[in-house]
Nucleic acid binder design. Sequence first.
DNA 1: AATGAATGAGGATTCATTCAT
DNA 2: TATGAATGAATCCTCATTCAT
Lengths: 205, 205, 205, 205
Amino acid sequence: MNRLAESRTVPARRRMPRGEREERMLDAGERLFGERGFRAASMDDIAGASGITKALLYQYFGSKEGLYEACVERARARLFRQLETEASAARPGRARIRAVVTAYFAYLDRERASWWLLYGDASMSAVNEMRRQNAEVVSRLVADDLKTAGGTASRDQIELIGNLIVGSGEQVARWWLEHPELPRRRAIDLFTAATEAAIAGVLRA
Amino acid sequence: MNRLAESRTVPARRRMPRGEREERMLDAGERLFGERGFRAASMDDIAGASGITKALLYQYFGSKEGLYEACVERARARLFRQLETEASAARPGRARIRAVVTAYFAYLDRERASWWLLYGDASMSAVNEMRRQNAEVVSRLVADDLKTAGGTASRDQIELIGNLIVGSGEQVARWWLEHPELPRRRAIDLFTAATEAAIAGVLRA
Amino acid sequence: MNRLAESRTVPARRRMPRGEREERMLDAGERLFGERGFRAASMDDIAGASGITKALLYQYFGSKEGLYEACVERARARLFRQLETEASAARPGRARIRAVVTAYFAYLDRERASWWLLYGDASMSAVNEMRRQNAEVVSRLVADDLKTAGGTASRDQIELIGNLIVGSGEQVARWWLEHPELPRRRAIDLFTAATEAAIAGVLRA
Amino acid sequence: MNRLAESRTVPARRRMPRGEREERMLDAGERLFGERGFRAASMDDIAGASGITKALLYQYFGSKEGLYEACVERARARLFRQLETEASAARPGRARIRAVVTAYFAYLDRERASWWLLYGDASMSAVNEMRRQNAEVVSRLVADDLKTAGGTASRDQIELIGNLIVGSGEQVARWWLEHPELPRRRAIDLFTAATEAAIAGVLRA
DNA sequence: AATGAATGAGGATTCATTCAT
DNA sequence: TATGAATGAATCCTCATTCAT
């Protein structure tokens, strides 16, 4: 209604192609959910911020949770698209790990808000679901790499590695985002070393 | 609607030593927060479940968040008391890591509900605060161990290790709790190997 | 959520003679209003079920109430057309009463849904209006019959009889529809006897 | 008798014995539901009219429907208490029928608003439920009377009579309330005659 | 210390209805 | 004529929190 007239970039009334409107709503959702968390961000605010009415938000996303999930999914996809691009561009093994880690930290630096959207509200089942998906993607990357290198591993080993990397990445990110004094370069080096070693350690076990 | 649903362990009215009352409230809080998450558990429900009135809940804990934090803190302390006991009983190095990991998985097995309390509602700052504390404790353990072994490491290395272990432990727990087919023994072996290797990897970097 | 749930009898797009379109809308309205009642049936649902757009519904009927009234009127006319046909085919007096009652119960049996449409939402003024109309029609029938028989009666007597029959018919229908174990034949006998006696009773008073 | 907004007899804040508060809420509910119907009367309005907050309304009655049902039930009980009092005071047979009918019309005259509450919103299942209850009560009265007189009747006959009387009473009331020119006395005579005859008619069938 | 009555504020969701095309 | 995007305005309900007793 009132608070945070905010960006509302354009009066933008009436007739906007569906796709574009949707992007606007997701932008607003991502911003507000990221800034305030799920429960503190009201549909009213999000509607206001995207310059439309609440009713339209419901017409598009069905419910607050629906909108939240759509926001999370879009942000997650954005991140992983980048990670996978880097992964496939790099040579297997150490170089690839480093490339992915580098891309991850770059993302953290660039899109703090989105990252908080992703990991801010763990109470939402959407977030745990996302963690699982992320772990799967990472597991697949690791498995591919291993295959290329001619090695083998059990399903358990691969899955544990995927989850381990996702979990450590989450918490290390949380820590690093609050310790900007540590140069990104150094953080990448350390995390890469840890990840590489952990993978090797698990494969040996 | 929910008029005193729940189990209300005991009729329990009037004149109960302060400590015991408090425990009751925390028990109920831990159970309901763990089962439903912060926002879905209402003070009404918790009051009902502990057999006392809401007003008293407020007298003891000041606010819903206060109660939540007290619940988290008690559960966290319980976990870390165990971890530290195991840590100090074991010999430094590999054996100690294994001992702590073992204790952690035992806790997971034993107190699933409490674990969800701890990690269910990441939106609460209390949870991130707890993650930080956990990382500190783990960092300290690692540092002690390193000192005993005569090694050295930068503050960054140590802190990153702490956070990495805490984060991977969280997500691996999430994964393992949903894959009961993996024997605990095996999970411990893998996670220990990963942790040990990761530490070594970081220290080399 | 409910994206065009319902059966949507036909895809039916564009260019359909006005009359037919209108029938479709009324069919959908009658079904949904009958099933869910006025307030629970949304224009969205009705539009979806008739395979056309809400906007068109408004173009034809002006408002939700307008649509509702049109539905009620069509169903009411259908019922009374039948009753009047039977009435005029039968000989005056007892035989005619029996004929009308028989037709009424047959209708109940055949079109339960429509009956609920008619009497489901008494809060709508349309329903009370319909009750009044029905009472008038019945009063007229009674008056005609009386004239044929050479009797006389005051306006009050006639009107009271009309309303009495309509009211008892409504509630007896409600009761009978939930007691299918009572043979229709028997219900007709009893209701005919009651009606006949009541008329006579009033005329004597 | 009642209307003219805001009786709100007392600012009445804080601490009122439960029973009394409840009566006030029911008074307001009865008035507003009666005047505007179920859907048009908002909980906000009812709360305002009874000088309390919506939340308290919910604490007492659980939902809008809950409140409505409580209102209907109280009004219904009031009416039938009177009818039964009259019934048991009168001698069986014709005199008793007349006594009950007289009491009914007196009630109509006295409490128009309540009567509309009772029969205004037939879409509410509470109203059909009430109709059924009323029919049961009337059936019982008729059965008692018959027993006293030494007669017999089938269950179907008795139930049909009960429903018939209730239904005709409802619609005749609707009609009479809009035709104040008909003296109550005369209305009572006619309706009594009709009822008496209808009962006899059914019993003969 | 303990209670139960009472509140204020806000939030999600739904709907009838209307334009721009 | 027919559509689908868009709206504004209610409405129900929940909840944390506080007083009077």
